Computed example of a mutant assay.
Amino acid sequence: MTDKPSPGEEDQLPARPLIFKGRGSTSNHNGRFEQLQREAFDDGWALEDADTPRLITEIIHDSSRSILHYNDSPDIPFDRSINPYRGCEHGCIYCYARPSHTYLGFSAGLDFESRILVKPDAAALLRQALAKPGYVCQPIAMGTNTDPYQPLERQQRITRQIIEVLAEHQHPLTIVTKSAMVERDIDLLAPMAAQNLARVFISITTLDRHLSRVMEPRAAAPERRLQTLERLSKAGIPCGVMTAPMIPALNDAEMEHILEHAHAAGARYAGYVLLRLPLEVAPLFEEWLQHHFPLKAAHVMSIIRQSRGGKAYDAQFHQRMRGQGIFADLLAQRFRLAASKLGFMQERSPLNTSIFRPPAATTARTAKKLTPQRDLFE
């Protein structure tokens, strides 16, 4: 016999989130700039588990007129970056880049994972930027906001086109990714690495397949990322591992094991970041915790707030990556001890900027301005 709610009681029951297969977020709330709010709800007809319909990815052409993004942040090791895509199909629930989608009028939730802006003119715009008379060569970082090797890259190939331009003009770059697709570009990256022009970091958050599946649903499996590290290293490409983010009471206990496996696979640089929950990411992450780990949710958020001055997030430079307090200090000590014991390099040697050859002015064509188009890709 099934207990049914009494009349009027249904209105008091919490709304059940609509779960889409292969997506991380459980909601699609509007961003902070929107005047109206929309909210999805389960009307009792939603299908369950494997029968749940897929959320189709929408591709939107981005007609940006520049491609290099500069920053002067004192707590990151690069001053410029390229993002071939806005939004990311990997769907990592913890992604600190989610709020960037709200500037476009989209949600930081499911929109961030399913409405992806692509930059087809990226390579031409990059060539144009490198040819400017006042350009000063410094390493370009890729993968700082969204993953340059997210699933769409297989068809779009924008990241590869960017690397081809950098390789042609002997310009250094660094890459951070959770995807095994970076192996496709070993033919470009290995010769660059031989000239000290390339370095690749693989982000590994957990070795637990189940946790990885629900936390970062469309990223490569943990063991596949380790295999990628090994293949890149054997190709002569200097590699590192990012144990990021470390989430209290969820994956932080794995940090030493991740570092051990990554070092065995060939990683020689390492880094970590304490979970960051800026703006819209905090409520999205709490919703996700309540759905997937309801018994741990309160404990996880309590430690996060203890490490962030009582808030879900502290955006201060030097604090935002590491946090403060007992847990944050212990995590930092654990990382230093493990990295030292395993022999990870304590400092990253500079990449080579001395052999950069700027494009000739005649080859730096102005990229054509695209009319925004939309199409669907599953």
Rank of each mutant, 00 (worst) to 15 (best):
R268C: 10
F317P: 05
L289F: 01
P294S: 12
H299G: 11
L342Q: 01
E287D: 14
M301W: 02
R320P: 08
K341D: 09
Q324R: 14
A264R: 13
H299V: 12
I355Q: 15
Q290R: 15
S354F: 08
A328F: 10
Q316V: 06
V273L: 13
Q319N: 10
Q319I: 13
R268I: 09
R276K: 10
L259N: 02
H263A: 02
N352R: 02
A264F: 08
G343H: 07
A282P: 04
A270L: 07
R334G: 06
P359W: 14
Q306N: 11
L250I: 01
R268D: 11
K341A: 11
K311I: 09
A253I: 05
A267Q: 03
E254D: 04
S302H: 12
F344T: 03
G271K: 12
I303M: 07
H261R: 14
A282E: 01
E347W: 13
Q333F: 07
G271P: 03
H292K: 02
Q324S: 15
D252W: 06
A270G: 03
F327S: 10
H261K: 12
H261T: 10
R336L: 03
G309H: 02
E254W: 04
K296A: 02
A338T: 01
R336D: 13
E280H: 11
S302D: 15
D329T: 14
S349W: 04
A328C: 06
F293L: 08
L250Q: 02
A338Y: 02
M345H: 14
H318Q: 13
F356V: 11
S340P: 05
L337Y: 11
Y269T: 02
E280N: 11
P283T: 03
T363Q: 14
E347Q: 15
A315R: 09
G325I: 08
K296M: 04
R268W: 07
G323A: 10
Q290D: 15
V281E: 02
I304Y: 06
S340I: 02
G310Y: 05
A315P: 10
A328P: 04
E256S: 09
T353D: 01
Y269H: 10
I326S: 13
T353Y: 08
L342N: 05
P350T: 06
R334S: 05
L274F: 09
F317R: 06
R322W: 07
A282C: 04
S349Y: 01
L275C: 05
Q306E: 15
Q333N: 12
H261C: 12
G310R: 06
L275G: 01
Y272K: 00
T353V: 11
H291C: 00
S302F: 09
L274T: 04
A298I: 14
P294F: 04
Q290T: 13
H261W: 03
Q306Y: 06
H292L: 06
